[in-house]
């Protein structure tokens, strides 16, 4: 289902795009099963209409926002970003979304806020394969407030000019291109603005393997594989991984003075 015309936004790469078939056929969306083709086979069960995001915590205007209101208020832009998975594969995807900062400004963030927590949909009736206890549901991710309000950070409601396919996180998902893909939570149902650091799902499950920050970093290895290189899925080539996934000019300042070996 095509979106209305989407204007080009800033920060886009001119690298060749991953094909739509690869980007929609090779997904990690554990609610629908652990295999890469599970989401494309099972995610059709996800009901995305009606949909609303509950906004709570340290905000001036808490409450639900309906998907239609979000789309009416925040025009979608095209952002062509690199996506680097913690599993050492990567894609280049044209997202259609708007800056998360715009939504946070709209709801008004209180001055003692430090973190933003995201919660995905959680409906065990449509995730039979996920009831195997792979992870604790709902899936939770979180960013520091300055990461969440960074102009690169996107809420995407589409890709390739199409309404977001279910297996890619319909109807709306996060996109944080300088972090490993698991930070970019899919099918968001709740956004909470908080003072304390929340506990993301993968970080809780395996803290040695999945850090809170999860910035793409070729020099800090995963316990079971190293992160110096990545497989580009559209042509099968293997390339060197760039610090912050190549977005260092835009985001390195956020981590000035931090030891990225410790805060991986």
């Amino acid at each position: 289902q095509s979106l209305p015309a989407v204007a080009p936004g800033p920060f886009s790469t001119d690298e060749p795009l991953t094909s739509f078939d690869v980007a929609t056929g090779y997904c990690n969306f554990f609610e629908f099963g652990p295999a890469k083709d599970d989401p494309s086979q099972h995610a059709h069960a996800l009901q995305t209409n009606p949909w609303s995001i509950e906004i709570d915590g340290l905000v001036d205007n808490p409450g639900p926002i309906a998907m239609e209101d979000l789309l009416a208020r925040f025009p979608l832009e095209e952002r062509i970003y690199r996506l680097r998975c913690v599993e050492a594969w990567s894609m280049v995807i044209p997202w259609n979304g708007f800056a998360l900062a715009d939504l946070l400004a709209h709801v008004g963030v209180k001055s003692d806020a430090r973190y933003v927590r995201f919660e995905a949909f959680d409906d065990t009736s449509i995730m039979p394969r996920a009831a195997q206890g792979l992870l604790d549901w709902p899936y939770v991710e979180a960013l520091r407030l300055d990461e969440a309000t960074h102009p690169l950070t996107l809420l995407a409601a589409g890709m390739y000019g199409e309404v977001m396919p279910n297996q890619n996180g319909a109807p709306i998902r996060l996109v944080v291109p300088w972090k490993y893909g698991f930070k970019s939570i899919k099918s968001i149902k709740r956004i909470s603005v908080l003072a304390e650091q929340p506990m993301p799902t993968w970080h809780e499950k395996a803290p040695r393997e999945y850090g809170f920050y999860a910035n793409v970093n070729p020099t800090v290895r995963h316990p079971r594989w190293h992160q110096a290189t990545e497989r580009r899925l559209h042509d099968g080539t293997r390339i060197r991984t760039e610090m912050f996934n190549g977005y260092g000019d835009l985001v390195a300042d956020l981590y000035a003075g931090m030891d990225l070996e410790t805060h991986y």
Binding site: R224, W225, H226, A228, R231, G236, T237, R238
Partner: peptide, 20 residues
């Protein structure tokens, strides 16, 4: 040839570092 793209430098780095 396929996973490491036939690039010996990358394969060698994996051999040196990776238990599997």
């Amino acid at each position: 040839m396929l996973d490491q793209g036939g690039i010996l430098e990358f394969a060698w780095a994996e051999m040196r570092k990776m238990l599997h």
